[in-house]
Design a protein around this nucleic acid. Structure first.
Lengths: 282, 282
DNA sequence: TGTTATTTTGTAATTAAATTACATTTTATT
DNA sequence: AATAAAATGTAATTTAATTACAAAATAACA
């Protein structure tokens, strides 16, 4: 548990003087970081050793250690819990809420990611003779992005946001192909139908979608994104970032598996692109 | 800026001994919290006052204050800051490094974002009769994503990843239009040229790009993304996420400014889309 | 209710840590 | 090569934190 909450909850178990210390800290936690044990003792109207004992009671090694833990507890702040945007939020708050809920989404993705599935996906990519990315609506641009990334390699890639094209591609897929389906909810009927067709082919079907969704059921390998329950009008964006990052991991894993000769090739591509850029002035 | 990142970025400006201190800290930031100035000095093979001077150089009041700031910086959680992916990283490490550097990038974006510029951009969007997004290469999919998001509103939106089309659109832009240019480096010649044309029109030119870049020079409003200096082969992705999130903020700000009647409309769109989805079983 | 044991709190002494002042070394400049 | 400037280290000083112990307060029990 974070220290600040611990101070809060333990307050009833403390002795009279130590409670004074707790109250003084809770009154202005940030300020404590700048205070010496003497200052805090004075503020709480107790002696210095009392403060010290208080720190030990709460599991710290001493006062400086307590301050260190407090600093971390404060920095974590109200961790990026899904705070919702409100009508009269200032721009500053808006930025904070969106960025922090995006970070929260990434953090959840990291914790919940099935590493084995990711490894399986990378292996499938490495062996693939062709890679296809499918998405509809908002997920289309994620698929587009994925295609862009794989365009740098020699394995053929395709991308489509057109259902008919997707179906054609799914039906014609062969055993050494990889088809990747991207969907936020995993409940878009059209995409599920395409995935069902793909499943009947010999191709490896990978889903970047919500765990346990109809789409996920159709996939041999599922890279699960974790959608916060309440899909607010303003907040469906965070999960798309998670999808993109999963693709980043795929590309990077793929690149590493290819070994150094490919990396040399990438360096060459980079070199070639340099000409289309303005030099950086030094 | 958070302390740990600052240590990282200032390392080249430090003297020899102070750099040793920085390296010792970067080698194991968490451990420093438990170390006295004497221990750290020994580890870094310098004298105690050198460590102290190092702390002051980085803006702390002294060593204890430095530790406090470091504790907060670590709690904010960017353990793998800018650490590079390596050939024999396990998949788990790969995921951690990519996700965490993405989060670091978001965190930097948040701290360094020019709120005024963001507000100006939102205002421009609200007043615009037409909105256009331009990007090339990898930034094209970001522009594409931006278009998708604004398609939900009644203001006409366009997007192009074709230079000729972009030029045409730039030349024909009128005073009540907003043109948004997206570029990771801000040094892509072709896009800078389009932006230069746009500037000559009466339209509002907004850039989502690196601060101080040639592209930024052409823009009336710049939403700066902060690119880590060393654009590693595997790591150009993090900044694109930052671009996407900035667009998320724009969309959200725009929506809020439009007031409740628009939000009702959004609800209706959502309702309509529901039919294309499988119901969630409960 | 008084006596004793236990806990809590404070005072003063001690120890540890951080900082300052100053000397020495290193590096750059002419 | 000589001198100035900067960087670093040594030793002294100051500050802060901790410990040991004594006094007060509370609780337990006769």
């Amino acid at each position: 548990m974070a220290l600040l909450e611990k101070v809060q909850s333990e307050i009833s178990n403390l002795s009279k003087s130590e409670r004074k210390v707790a109250e003084a800290i809770l009154a202005n936690p940030e300020a404590v970081l700048q205070q010496s044990i003497a200052t805090l003792a004075q503020l709480a109207e107790v002696s210095e050793p009392t403060v010290n004992r208080f720190c030990r009671t709460l599991g710290a090694k001493g006062y400086p250690d307590f301050k260190l833990q407090l600093a971390q507890s404060i920095a974590r702040g109200t961790p990026y819990v899904n705070r919702h945007v409100e009508q009269n939020d200032s721009t500053e708050h808006l930025v904070a809420k969106i960025i922090e809920s995006t970070m929260a989404s990434l953090s959840i993705t990291q914790r919940c990611l099935d590493i084995q599935a990711m490894e399986a996906a990378i292996t499938a990519f490495v062996q693939a003779q062709r890679i296809s990315f499918f998405g509809l609506g908002a997920s289309a641009s994620v698929a587009h992005d994925a295609q862009n990334k794989f365009l740098r390699f020699s394995t053929p890639v395709q991308f489509s946001d057109d259902v008919l094209m997707q179906k054609t591609a799914a039906i014609n897929a062969t055993a050494n192909e990889v088809l990747v389906f991207i969907s936020h909810t995993g409940r878009t009927k059209a995409l599920c139908e395409v995935a069902a067709l793909a499943r009947q082919s010999q191709a490896t079907v990978i889903g970047i979608t919500a765990a346990g969704s109809p789409l996920a059921e159709e996939c041999a390998i599922v890279l699960a994104t974790h959608v916060p329950e309440d899909t607010d009008v303003y907040m469906p964006m965070a999960s798309r970032i998670a999808q993109l990052v999963l693709i980043d991991v795929l590309v990077t894993g793929y690149t590493l598996k290819q070994g150094p000769e490919l990396q040399e090739k990438l360096r060459q591509i980079k070199e070639a692109l340099r000409d289309s850029r303005y030099e950086k002035r030094t």
